[in-house]
Structures are given as structure tokens and as C-alpha cells.
Amino acid sequence: MPWAVLGIFIFFLVVSYIVLQGTRAALAWRKAAAAGDVKVIRDIAEDALNSWRSGRRPKAVAPDVWRGIQSAQLIAVAADGVRVSCQAQSEYRMLEGRWLEVRNALQEGISIAAKAAEMLLYELPNFRPQLIQLDVYTSFRQGEDLSSNLCILSLQATRDQARTVDWDEWTAEEIVDALDARYRLGERGQPLPIDVEPWPADEPQEATAQ
């Protein structure tokens, strides 16, 4: 019996030590990120994106939106923010034996951008970005040419802007408009390519090949 008690005591000591070390590491990361350490910020953002890619879809998030979230790639970081790129594709459904587009890539991209912006602003562990940039890309094909991924929506949002958003009640369109998202529509309502916003980063911008 004394050996069992000793074993339990040692077990709790080990667990407490592990928890303490984890807490210290989290505090160190939080302090470094708050001080603008871009290497730490990059690691935090990459870890978060990787966890979203491997994580289960929240019930409240549509499957197509979650696929867009999981496509997110970190493009650049700054002392106070992150820039991310993701993909959006049209949604098709089989109706009367034919595949018909029911939501175009921009409609999907708006939904993806609204959710991704919320996650980047509020769900990065140990870092609260004051600025985010989100660029949404989709595929375009001209005739027989190979398809190209071009940007159809871009937004830069500050934390002050985010505070004005009702994330629970507003539609995705209302959210991205409040965050000053840029996008263009053609005569038939189709998305058109746009120029990507320049990133006001403290470090050189990386290649953005899609």
C-alpha cells in the first residue's frame, strides 16, 4: 500500500512538472510575440494553420467553408500581424442529371474570408494580431491555356475594425464589407481577378506563388 501511495505521489509530481513547463513555455511565447518577435509569431501562426488543417470541422461551419480554411497558407508575418492566402472554388450540385453551379467562387470566398478573419484575429494561441491580411484565390482558365490561380478577394483588417463586427449575428457579406474587403463582379455576376493589397510588413514579403 505505501508503494502505491508513493507511485501516485510521483505520478502527480511528474504531471505537475509537465503542466508547469508547458505554462512557462506558453508565457514565454506570449511575451516574445507581444514584443514583436517575428520568428515566434511565424511559428505560432504555422502551428495554428497546421492544427486547423488536421482538425475536425466545427458543426457550425459549412464543409466548403472549412475546406477553404484548411487551404490557408501563411504568406508573411509582421511584428503586429499576419498575412494568409486561401483557396475558394464554386459549389456544384447535381440537378436533373446536370452539374449546376449553385454558389460561385466569390460567394464561397466571402464565407471563407469571414470565418478565416475571425479565426486569425481570435484563435491564434499566444498572439493577438493587430492587423491581418487575407487573400482569397480561385482558378481561372482562358481558352486552351493552363488554369491560373488569381486573387478574387482581399482584405486588410485591424483589431479595432474587428471590434465593430457582430461575429455571431452578421452575415458573411456584412462581415467582409465591414472589414473593407475588395472584390469585383463581372456583368453576369461572376468574380473577376483583382490586384492584391500590398502588405505593410516589417520583414520582406515572401513569394506568393499559388
Rank of each mutant, 00 (worst) to 15 (best):
A4V: 13
A4K: 14
A4N: 13
G7A: 13
I8K: 11
I8P: 02
I10Y: 08
I10S: 08
F11V: 04
F11A: 11
F12K: 07
F12T: 05
V14H: 03
Y17D: 14
I18K: 11
L20I: 09
Q21A: 14
G22L: 06
T23W: 08
A26M: 04
L27T: 10
L27N: 14
A28P: 02
A32N: 10
A33H: 04
A34T: 12
V40P: 01
I41Q: 02
D43P: 07
D43W: 07
E46M: 07
D47P: 03
A48M: 06
L49F: 00
N50D: 12
N50V: 01
N50P: 02
S51Y: 02
W52P: 02
R53W: 01
R53T: 09
G55T: 03
G55E: 08
P58Q: 09
K59Q: 14
P63G: 01
V65Q: 09
W66G: 10
W66M: 15
G68F: 01
G68K: 00
Q70Y: 00
S71T: 02
Q73G: 02
V77K: 04
A79W: 13
D80T: 14
G81F: 07
S85K: 15
A88M: 07
A88K: 10
Y92K: 14
L95G: 04
L95W: 00
E96D: 14
E96L: 10
G97E: 06
R98T: 10
L100F: 05
V102P: 05
R103E: 15
R103P: 00
N104L: 04
A105V: 03
L106Y: 06
Q107P: 07
Q107T: 14
E108M: 12
A114P: 00
A114N: 00
K115P: 08
A117R: 04
M119G: 06
L120W: 03
L121A: 00
L121C: 01
L124S: 00
F127W: 08
R128G: 08
R128E: 13
R128K: 12
R128F: 09
P129L: 06
L131H: 15
I132Y: 13
Q133I: 09
D135H: 10
V136W: 04
Y137S: 07
T138S: 12
G143N: 06
D145R: 10
N149I: 00
C151I: 03
I152G: 06
L153E: 01
S154L: 03
L155A: 03
L155S: 06
T158G: 12
R159K: 09
R159N: 05
Q161V: 01
A162C: 03
T164L: 11
T164H: 07
D166P: 02
W167R: 05
E169M: 11
W170V: 02
T171W: 07
T171Q: 10
E173R: 12
E174K: 07
I175P: 00
D177S: 15
A178L: 05
L179R: 06
A181C: 01
Y183H: 11
L185H: 09
G186W: 00
R188C: 11
G189N: 10
Q190I: 06
P191S: 08
P193D: 05
E197S: 13
P200Q: 08
E206L: 12
A207M: 10
T208S: 13
A209S: 12
Q210M: 15
